[in-house]
Design a protein around this nucleic acid. Structure first.
Lengths: 354, 354
DNA sequence: TCCTGCATCTGGATCGATACAGATGACATG
DNA sequence: CATGTCATCTGTATCGATCCAGATGCAGGA
């Protein structure tokens, strides 16, 4: 059963007794031929099993791919399982839908493979999400010479970017806890480098934080604490990742079992916060009575927890949508868009126990 | 600042003083030319800002797109935010990585747009996930004449499929609760039709359940209950969707507030189960003391809940990976693969209160 | 009658690459 | 010295469509 070669537009044209151009117009420009002829051509095409104009041929000729590529730092695995990343992806998808573009997902976990994938992608532009360390992949993207928009990563490439008020958001979180009267803090940080390290954030690691979001949130927390006269030396910082809850739980355990247990925990993401709360419970601590926790992101799950999570909201979906619109030219070009963050007070924060 | 036309392979060849073919080989077939010449050509290309072989032209010539399309029923929004769907997507991504293929996401929510997108997609094959109602989209996919694999939906198209032992899994869930001594049950069902209905599953809706998974899980539950002598007339069934927790919570409220409150709840997905547990708590019920709950899927979140969720595990990631492998021919062709389901007993089930 | 405008249809050039068969020269072999 | 082999490089045909300029026929106006 050899697969019979699919008919082409030329075959259709011949069978219908018209020119190639007319057959093409029957599919793409109804106004260029009479309704009757159009109907006839399409009927002939249908009867022959013509699958419609060949996408690759059309792309080559028109120069438009009708798709955009989204490059993620981690494995796609995490891209889709992290609610914050997936909310952003939703936004990108929404922006694409509006422009009738498809979405090509590319992961940068294996840099060599990613570079090949980027070079081969049939797209009209790229969105780069949160890459910093994967310089080679970024360069591959730039080499394509296509439009690029970055998300959460304004510094890396000279291209329009969409970011959020990271530092201001982090400040809000810390200030909220300070207002409640807390004085003993701990910080549960996101990754600083792509090396799968989990543990205390020492001076060396603190010096080169590759992920901008991590750096800015930390700065925001510490600025607020310092302004309130808290000795930063007394604030332990543990680094872990949000896609491995066990790591975050272990980090939380380290933060909560020393002497002078903190009464307030600043978590750089909601997933970290949730893992931390789970760990706190295991240690017999009540949230928020014994420990207040503030997350970051406001993922959909955050409000459904028991108790619901106090957190810093960032417009995740919006972020993706705006990036797509910037890329697809549906929005006036701006060199960069900064979206606001906002404190959402729910049930995981309270004044410290007396 | 008119965009300068990007150089082509021909330009590179001329600049390097070689033929087009040799220039092409410098990029694709290192063994076809001397190392020196290859280095020289690539250096010239680099210097000219040549972005590498044009993907669309290459695709047209080679007939390979290096990507597969995944068609989802709902908005991409749900595809990526539903942990079960995203785990499956992970699997697909893993299978693609292995074959160096990219992933094109297509949503079928607007059927006309989806048909256009399918017709235009530069892919080597399609994975259809869980489509049933969107017949027009399925037909568009089939018209492309490309390889197709379906997931969770063996009946719809004559193509290789990957499914799980839905009915057997559902039986396990019900039998587990029966063994614990429960006699008063309620069922929280997934959607039966793509009409956004939430409410009791009446006879009419029960008659045409379009989503196969929903149908089979219901059959499994009821078969086990009937076999244990439970009067199915006494088992209320509420339909809702997993991507809208409020709906599932409202449905749970209806199930739990009548007379003869059930002591055991069979939820067709983990997200439904989590929403149900949240609602039960709001009603002042303790889980598992006052109400036992069994989910379905075993999403990563399930084990991290407090208490951790008893559920039916299905190999979500595996499912996606196998589908990708079937499609990409990395696995011997089989007409269909059925994956096992398994009961995972955690903390949300217990004997009914005396 | 001739010209103009409009709707409809056609032919050739083109997008940018790869496949394939064949040319070239160096070198070893009988 | 003729021949065969090998590595290296070239030229042409081709993938399947769209673009663009022009051909055709017909109706209406001067």
């Amino acid at each position: 059963m050899a697969k019979p070669a699919l008919p082409t537009l030329l075959d259709v044209a011949r069978a219908a007794g018209v020119s190639r151009t007319t057959a093409s117009n029957a599919f793409n420009r109804p106004d260029q031929l009479s309704g009757e002829l159009r109907a006839k051509v399409r009927a002939v095409a249908q009867a022959m099993g013509y699958p419609g104009p060949h996408p690759m041929a059309r792309m080559l000729r028109t120069g438009r791919a009708g798709a955009i590529g989204v490059v993620f730092p981690d494995e796609l695995v995490h891209a889709v399982s992290d609610p914050a990343a997936s909310a952003m992806l939703q936004g990108i998808a929404a922006g694409c839908d509006a422009a009738e573009a498809a979405l090509l997902l590319l992961s940068a976990v294996d840099q060599a493979a990613a570079q090949r994938a980027v070079a081969q992608a049939a797209v009209d532009g790229f969105i780069i999400h949160c890459l910093a360390a994967e310089r080679a992949v970024i360069d591959s993207v730039l080499e394509r010479g296509l439009p690029v928009v970055t998300i959460d990563n304004s510094a890396v490439v000279d291209a329009p970017s969409v970011t959020i008020a990271e530092r201001a958001g982090a400040r809000l979180a810390a200030e909220h806890l300070l207002r409640l009267g807390h004085r003993r803090f701990a910080i549960l940080a996101l990754e600083t480098q792509p090396d799968d390290y989990a543990g205390p954030l020492d001076a060396a690691r603190r010096r080169d934080i590759m992920y901008l979001g991590t750096r800015l949130r930390l700065e925001g927390y510490e600025a607020a604490l310092a302004a309130a006269g808290i000795d930063l030396g007394s604030v332990p910082v543990e680094e872990s990742f949000c896609y491995r809850p066990e790591a975050a739980m272990a980090a939380t355990a380290r933060l909560l079992t020393g002497p002078d247990r903190p009464t307030a925990l600043l978590a750089m993401s909601d997933l970290l916060a949730l893992a931390a709360i789970a760990q706190a419970r295991l240690l017999g601590l009540r949230v928020p009575d014994d420990l207040s926790v503030v997350g970051f992101d406001d993922i959909p799950l955050a409000g459904l927890q028991q108790p619901p999570l106090t957190t810093i909201r960032q417009p995740l979906v919006e972020k993706g949508r705006i990036a797509a619109e910037l890329l697809l030219g549906e929005r006036a070009k701006a060199q960069s868009v900064v979206l606001p963050t906002e404190l959402v007070i729910r049930g995981t924060t309270a004044p410290p126990a007396a």
